[in-house]
Amino acid sequence: MAVLTGRVHRFGDDVDTDLIIPARYLNTSDPVELARHAMEDADPAFASRVKPGDFVVAGKNFGCGSSREHAPLALKAAGVAGVIASSFARIFYRNALNIGLPIFEAPEAARALKEGEEVAVDPVAGRIRRLSTGEEFSATPFPEFMQALVAAGGLVPYVRRRLAERGGRA
């Protein structure tokens, strides 16, 4: 995976899934449709402001609330390259890994990064660099199994392989 460069969009602590994608739009699972309403109740202008490759930066417990996979899907489809937060809620963390939205648990970066500034992120090394000063922050590395999951391209190809193995054994 190449280094990703984009602008920072800052949010606070406990950003819940209703803020990421309000339930009123969940009568569809079309990513393009969902992307139009990404972060709408936190910042109505977000969907029109966000550029492909940008990063969402937030405080603790990002993605708390519902299990809706529509949340990471909406962010990904809106062009968000990744989410940097002090910590993630459990289900959002799984969902993001499963669908291939890069996430970085990086409390220092989450505290330091400012709205609008540019960052370069190396998703494999988990290194986040502030472009204006060159200052670097590191993210908590994923456990080995999850690294393998991410390397395999998410859970879908992983299960596909498991199913093929089972078929082979039968």
Partner: peptide, 9 residues
């Protein structure tokens, strides 16, 4: 609770 892709798995 899990997400939809987990549930599919």
């Amino acid at each position: 609770g899990v997400g939809s892709t987990d549930l599919a798995a």
